[in-house]
Nucleic acid binder design. Structure first.
Length: 1150
RNA sequence: GCGCACGUAGCUCAGUUGGUUAGAGCGCGUCGCUGAUAACGACGAGGUCCGUGGUUCGAAUCCACGCGUGCGCACCA
């Protein structure tokens, strides 16, 4: 038995109770148990950091991450969902520093590394509760209790294992790298941080002469925007393929060498004509020696020679070298190289070093200290901050005649994002790298096999990123992170890597473990996991295998926390120390999803690590097969026009500013607080509303507006419409005592059609009325469509399908069928068919929407199956409907679509002629372009008659007085065949009489035309016929039909219209008097107009039955007033422009 | 500066391998329905498909250039 539900449902409240139901009954666990042993669908959770509050963007990723696992689970897969938390790294340290009111490394050291990391460890859980609440409230089913945590010992050891693997294969190395250095803060910054701080500035740029050693009065001219790097010059670079010109400058005694193509540009710059003396190719310049502008190093090493590996000797530096990156886009085509202060410069140095015998090549020259000030190497500038040295250096060059030209150069330059006055410099720093460049091709190949959504990410953004791969700078000179598991022999400097804590303890002569033990003793609260962290792990040393008596000591660095996240596919299981089985069954992932900012983050770290560790075992792609790359979520807010009041909600703006405000959109910003907390959305509209909005409004990779109004608006168009259908069903099912599946003998499970078919009153679909067959056919089509789309990860398309179905169900099936539910015979088979059909639609729909709006689905399922023994406890324990239970009838769908179109055109025609639907009309003429569906339409004319309230309907596909025909070529067909003749053909067809052409076609089966003397035969497939309504008719036209109304009103039609109006008035009265649906009433109508009375009398039967009136009196009053005795049951109103009074009395309840 | 994406109605977005009348929802306007009822529905107005040029019988769709927006990369000396 069904209980009527209210239409004013409060979704948020309903969701809260469903959350409780899920929790109390362990539904999520059951959904997994149910699929025990099934084919796995593997999902990886990209770990969020829980040391900040979750924001709306996280809701988007979490909603998508929930959708597909739920769907696959219902499709019969086992989808484990292990949560995870990213817990290491600079963001955590920064957060703790803020709390402590410190920020430099010295201050951290002073505070103490030990208490510092203890604070870090605690801080990562600060917002855990909020995260868990948002996760749960959104309906994101994921196993939070089994979450992996990147600081846990097992995770750390797993990372160690992988690093040891790379180390042993020679892929993890220590090297110098040029990093972005914040000199004032004494630390390198990550590329992300650097990217935050770019700003446009004007820097001095100088053109400097480098005189050649072996060619008197001849100089190279180089250009640089960082004069302060000149004292550290080591090479000048040219490109072998570029032509260089020897030129004479009238104001310079030297002959100058610059790129030939730049001679003119440079001449214009200095406003003097440069005369080209000769040109040489770059390769002829390579190897030439020059005198650098400062002799701090040159004076000592200028003559230094080194032995070449290839034999012979060469000067170690201050030579011209070739470099690929040299272009003539700017400067002079000759590049000053200061390897200490530029990454590409540094690479050149390394390459040069490599051609010399060990120890014979050039070293790195660096006249600047880590504090960004010149060292004693450059005594003239010692202690001067590099940027402050630009000016004196230029002056010195000018004084010595080396400065050929100087100008301002405007460009973007990075500054510290936390101290925005401090420019960053590139600076050499020793750090650890992973040789990812050796795997560039492998990563590209692996990438090419990944199913990216949208597709262009693969070859586009991600592929490009891989193409320009550089070795992964792994180490961080910080505190809170996975310690780099490399121990160094204090005597020989030889190193080895350790793959686990146990392995470490098994080393000979281990010492220092007591540091941890003592700390733990002193503070038993300390998490056991901290023992593999700084500073405890640093204390552990062992006997060196490389030199007797020497100790092995860990290097001081921790690693980039992105490595942690990229290692999660195996580290989440502690693999290979533990969890071998889980790893093997849960790798690679079938599906992951994050926003596009993870391209260089988690997507890359995963792919790189996986490719390096596992190669082609298993086959590519791994570690993930499919990835939905989400767009960024944007904020929407309102502000006053003068911009004084900003970041308001729409409501607040309206309240505070009247209508005088503007809507703004932009990036979400924690600082600006330009978005509302997801919790507010949950409380006001519910999680399903948010989910549906996110899924159904655009393809997931588009950026999406987090708009409260849009979220609210997404409710009525789908969820509420479905709920109203459900409510309709329950109202009548209760009235009629429709038993539904409770009458079924034997076991019930998922209420599939086969189970329902066992009910006595359930008839085969083929025996039911056409509308029933139609909606079930649409249902089957929808199931297949949704499944096909979801299998392709097209959630947006699936929502479209679901939306269209709910629309058809609500706005056609239910609307056209209402009368069937009102029939007084409770056992009427047609009525029972209607119930069963609607019931089945609702049951299947609740399953279909379960992954999308899990709460609404659960609410529907719960009430549709209430009291049924044996039925699955939750819709999420059901199998997803695939549509194979009902043969879908494409022809029927098409025909019903046409019928709906005809109804719509009819309404349009009525609108045009201002004839409301309640006024019956005598006749409708429908003219169709083709006769293929006419017989069917004729057999269904009752539907259209009722829908359009007309007495008669007439279909034709032949000539019609309401319609003109025009014939057009079928371009798709004829295009390839007649090509260039098409425009003329089109014109010819247009010029001819449409009716005549159609005549010809029906007589001969073809049309023959001569175009440009060429005869063309067109058959039925080659033309398309268009209809249009002739002027002067109340008609409306669609693509393939025209609907025309006979607008003539006879007295009888007018009477019928009056009756319809009367019915409506009485119904309205019933409602206002709060009659029950089943109450019988007695009606008295008072009027002075006898024609009106006649109209009512003539339709007495109809009015009485429609309004459940057991008595209908029409009283014609002759007196002046129709106000009758002030009876409380009597009401004054208007009917057909006449005043009347209606008295309504309830006679009996049902 | 380079790369990737995007640019379609007032707003948010769809638009299949190019096919000649470009769609949806919201908003707006008009109206209807009234036994789902503080719900619902219909109809309508509204478009130089960013611009220019090209390919083609035919371009929102393909190509080139430009403009604008977003994101990423980058002192390419």
């Amino acid at each position: 038995m069904f209980r009527a539900v209210k239409t004013d449902v409060k979704f948020p409240n309903q969701e809260e109770s469903i959350l409780k139901f899920w929790k109390d009954n362990d539904i999520y666990k059951k959904s997994l148990l149910l699929r025990h042993g099934s084919k796995p669908f593997v999902f990886f959770e990209g770990p969020p950091t829980a040391n900040g509050l979750p924001h709306p963007g996280h809701c988007l990723t979490r909603a998508i991450k929930d959708l597909f696992p739920r769907y696959r689970t219902m499709r019969g897969y086992l989808c484990n969902r292990k949560a995870g938390w990213d817990t290491h790294g600079l963001p955590v340290e920064v957060e703790v520093c803020k709390e402590l009111g410190i920020h430099s490394k010295e201050e951290i050291e002073a505070f103490g590394v030990e208490p510092f990391i203890a604070k870090c460890q605690q801080s990562v859980w600060r917002y855990m509760r909020e995260w868990e609440r948002v996760t749960e409230r959104l309906g994101f089913w994921i196993d939070l209790s089994e979450a992996y945590v990147t600081y846990h010992q097992s995770f750390v050891e797993s990372v160690w294992w992988s690093l040891k693997n790379l180390f042993d294969r020679g892929l993890l190395y220590r090297g110098h790298k040029i990093v972005w250095w914040w000199a004032q803060g004494g630390t390198a910054l990550s590329s992300g941080e650097v990217g935050q701080g770019y700003r446009e500035v004007a820097d001095p740029s100088v053109y400097v002469r480098f005189p050649l050693v072996d060619e008197p009065n001849t100089s190279l001219v180089v250009w640089t925007t960082t004069p302060w790097t000149l004292p550290s010059n080591q090479f000048a670079a040219v490109h072998e393929g570029i032509k260089y010109a020897y030129c004479r400058d009238p104001e310079s005694k030297d002959t100058l060498i610059v790129a030939a193509d730049l001679v003119q540009t440079l001449g214009e710059k200095i406003k003097r004509e440069l005369t080209v003396l000769k040109t040489v190719s770059g390769s002829e310049l390579v190897g030439r020696r020059y005198v650098p502008p400062f002799d701090y190093y040159y004076s000592k090493m200028g003559m230094q020679l080194g032995s070449l590996l290839a034999g012979g000797e060469q000067h170690t530096q201050w030579r011209v070298v070739h470099a690929d990156f040299v272009t003539i886009d700017s400067g002079t085509g000759i590049v000053h190289l200061a390897p200490a202060f530029g990454e590409v410069d540094y690479e050149v140095l390394m390459a040069q070093k490599a051609i010399f015998a060990q120890g014979q090549g050039p070293g790195l020259i660096c006249a600047v200290g880590p504090d960004g000030k010149f060292t004693s190497d450059a005594p003239d500038y010692q202690g001067v901050w590099v940027k402050d040295a630009d000016r004196p250096i230029s002056r010195s060059l000018r004084e010595r005649g080396l400065l050929w030209h100087q100008e301002q150069y405007v460009h973007d330059y990075p500054f510290c994002w936390r101290a925005s006055e401090d420019p960053l410099i590139q600076y050499p720093r020793e750090s650890w790298f992973i040789r990812t460049t050796a795997f560039r091709d492998a990563m590209l190949e692996n990438n090419s096999k990944i199913g990216w959504l949208p597709e262009h990410i693969g070859p586009g953004r991600f592929g490009n990123f891989l193409e320009s791969n550089v070795d992964w700078a792994l180490s961080r000179e910080r505190y809170w992170g996975t310690p780099l598991p490399v121990w160094v022999c204090q005597a020989t400097g030889k190193m080895e890597s350790i793959g686990s804590y146990e392995e470490l303890l098994a080393k000979p002569g281990v010492q220092g473990t007591e540091v941890w033990l003592r700390a733990k003793e002193a503070n038993p609260e300390l998490a056991e996991d901290l023992k593999v962290h700084k500073p405890y792990i640093d204390a552990v040393t062992y006997q060196s295998p490389f030199a007797s008596g020497a100790r092995m000591q860990r290097v001081s660095e921790v690693i980039d926390c992105w490595y942690d996240s990229g290692a999660m596919p195996f580290a989440q299981w502690g693999y290979p120390h533990t969890g071998k089985e889980q790893f093997e069954s849960q790798f690679p992932a079938d599906f992951i999803s994050e926003a596009i900012d993870q391209t260089r983050g988690w997507f890359y770290s995963q792919l790189a690590i996986s490719t390096m560790l596992f190669g082609k075992q298993p086959e590519y792609p791994h570690p993930f097969k499919n990835c939905i790359v989400l767009g960024l979520m944007l904020a929407e807010w309102y502000e006053s026009k003068d911009g004084k009041q900003r970041f308001l909600t729409e409501e607040d703006a309206r309240g505070a500013l009247g209508g005088d405000f503007v809507q703004k959109t932009g990036k979400m910003s924690k600082q600006l607080r330009n978005y509302r907390s997801p919790q507010e959305i949950f409380d006001r509209y519910g999680a399903d509303a948010l989910r549906w909005y996110l899924f159904a409004n655009q393809a997931p990779w588009n950026s999406i507006l987090y708009s409260e109004r849009a979220i609210r608006d997404s409710i009525p168009e789908f969820m509420l419409r479905l709920w109203n259908v459900f409510s309709f069903f329950t109202i009548y099912a209760e009235i009629d005592g429709f038993a539904g599946p409770s009458e079924i003998q034997g076991g019930l499970d998922q209420l599939d059609a086969s189970e329902l078919a066992r009910a006595k009153t359930y008839r085969p679909v083929s025996d039911r009325s056409e509308l029933d067959r139609w909606i079930l056919s649409e249902l089957g089509t929808t199931c297949r469509d949704v499944v096909g789309k979801m299998d392709r990860y097209d959630s947006y398309g699936a929502c479209e399908s679901l939306h269209a179905f709910v629309d058809a169900l609500s706005n056609w099936y239910v609307r056209r069928n209402r009368a069937r539910y009102w029939s007084s015979d409770k056992q009427d088979q047609d009525k029972l068919d209607a119930y069963w059909t609607l019931y089945e639609c609702l049951v299947v729909t609740s399953k279909l929407i379960a992954p999308f709006t899990p709460f609404l689905a659960e609410a529907l399922w719960g009430q549709l199956t209430s009291g049924l023994a044996g039925v699955r406890q939750s819709v999420h324990l059901c199998d997803y409907p695939t549509g194979d239970f009902a043969a879908s009838d494409v022809l029927l769908n098409e025909r019903m679509g046409l019928l709906r179109q005809i109804a719509s055109l009819g309404r349009s025609a009525r609108m045009d002629s201002k004839l409301k639907v309640r006024q019956p009309l005598s006749r409708v003429e429908v003219t169709l372009a083709s006769d293929s569906h006419i017989d069917w339409l004729v057999s269904h004319d009752d539907i259209v008659r009722e829908e359009l309230n007309v007495k008669e309907i007439h279909y034709t596909s032949g000539s019609s007085p309401f319609v003109t025909y025009s014939v057009q070529p079928n371009f798709r067909n004829l295009g390839p065949r007649v090509g260039p003749l098409l425009p003329k053909l089109k014109a010819a067809l247009g010029a001819a009489s449409g009716a005549e052409l159609m005549d010809q076609m029906s007589r001969n089966g073809k049309i023959v035309l001569a175009i440009d003397g060429k005869e063309l035969q067109l058959d039925g497939q080659d033309i398309q016929v268009r209809l249009s309504a002739k002027e002067g008719w109340a008609a409306a036209q669609g693509k393939s039909c025209v609907v025309a109304l006979n607008t003539e009103l006879t007295p009888e039609l007018i009477r019928d219209g009056i009756a319809k109006d009367a019915i409506r008035l009485i119904q309205d009265l019933r409602k206002r008097r709060q009659c029950n649906y089943t109450d019988r009433i007695a009606i008295k109508v008072f009027t002075k107009n006898s024609e009106l009375a006649q109209a009512l009398e003539a339709n007495r039967q109809l009015i009485a039955s429609e309004t459940l009136a057991s008595n209908l009196d029409v009283v014609v009053l002759s007196s002046e007033s129709i106000e009758v005795g002030g009876s409380p049951q009597c009401e004054l109103t208007e009917l057909a422009d006449e005043q009347i009074a209606i008295e309504l009395k309830v006679v009996a309840g049902d």
